[in-house]
Amino acid sequence: MGHEKNGKHVTLTTSADRLLGQEWLEVDVVRAHLQRLDEGFSGAAVYDPGTDLVVGIVTDAVLSGHDEGYAGRMLPLDTLRGHWEELDDFLPIDWLP
């Protein structure tokens, strides 16, 4: 959806208390942001500017209805590591608990 050439970013919010299904975190797009989640964001890194670290990946978004593009889910890095142990071989994990 136009992300391939220059890429796009979207500003998300979430918190540890927004756990879904014991694996995902619910995310919301900051509504003042001009870009929303749409097709093509799945698999995108979720970056925390406060720590300068990637903290997970976007897995899906609400693509219809009232919350279209403003709500979705992400898999946190610790969940990904639990399903794919070899991931640690690709990460600078000295900062991970």
Rank of each mutant, 00 (worst) to 15 (best):
L80N: 03
F90D: 09
V10E: 07
L25N: 06
D28R: 13
A32T: 10
L96I: 13
L87E: 05
G69A: 07
F41R: 05
D48T: 06
S15A: 15
V27T: 06
V46Q: 01
G69K: 03
G65P: 04
P97N: 12
H3K: 00
L80S: 05
G82M: 12
S42F: 10
A16H: 11
L63K: 05
R73D: 07
G2D: 05
L80E: 03
H66C: 11
D94E: 14
A61P: 08
W24T: 01
D28T: 06
K8W: 08
E23D: 14
E39P: 03
E86K: 08
T59E: 10
H66N: 04
W95D: 09
H9I: 15
L34W: 14
L63Y: 01
W24P: 02
M74E: 09
H83G: 15
T11K: 11
T11D: 02
E39A: 15
R18A: 10
W84F: 14
A32M: 02
D89M: 10
H33G: 01
V55N: 09
P76T: 04
D88M: 07
F41S: 02
T14M: 09
H3E: 03
L75R: 12
G69W: 00
E4V: 12
Q22Y: 03
L37D: 05
D17L: 09
S64R: 08
G2M: 06
G72Y: 00
L96Y: 04
G21F: 11
W84R: 11
M74W: 11
Y70G: 00
L19C: 07
R18G: 01
A71K: 01
H33Y: 08
V55K: 08
D78K: 03
L75V: 03
D94H: 14
E39G: 07
T14N: 09
L20G: 04
L96R: 02
H33T: 01
G7C: 13
E86I: 00
S64M: 02
D60Y: 07
L53K: 12
T79E: 09
P92T: 04
A44E: 04
A61D: 06
N6Q: 12
L80D: 06
S15M: 12
S15L: 13
E23I: 06
G7V: 07
G50F: 03
L12Q: 04
F41T: 03
P92E: 15
K5F: 10
G82K: 10
A44T: 13
A45P: 15
L53Q: 13
V54R: 08
S64L: 05
D67Y: 05
I93H: 14
R81M: 07
H66A: 11
P92V: 08
L96V: 15
L37K: 06
L12P: 00
T59D: 10
D28L: 08
V54Y: 12
S64C: 11
P97D: 12
L96P: 01
P92Q: 13
D78Q: 10
G40A: 03
I57K: 07
L63Q: 03
D48V: 08
G72N: 01
L75T: 08
V10G: 03
E85T: 09
A16D: 14
A44Y: 09
I57M: 05
V29I: 10
D38I: 02
G72T: 03
D48P: 02
F41Y: 15
W24E: 01
Q22I: 05
G50W: 11
L25C: 01
V27I: 13
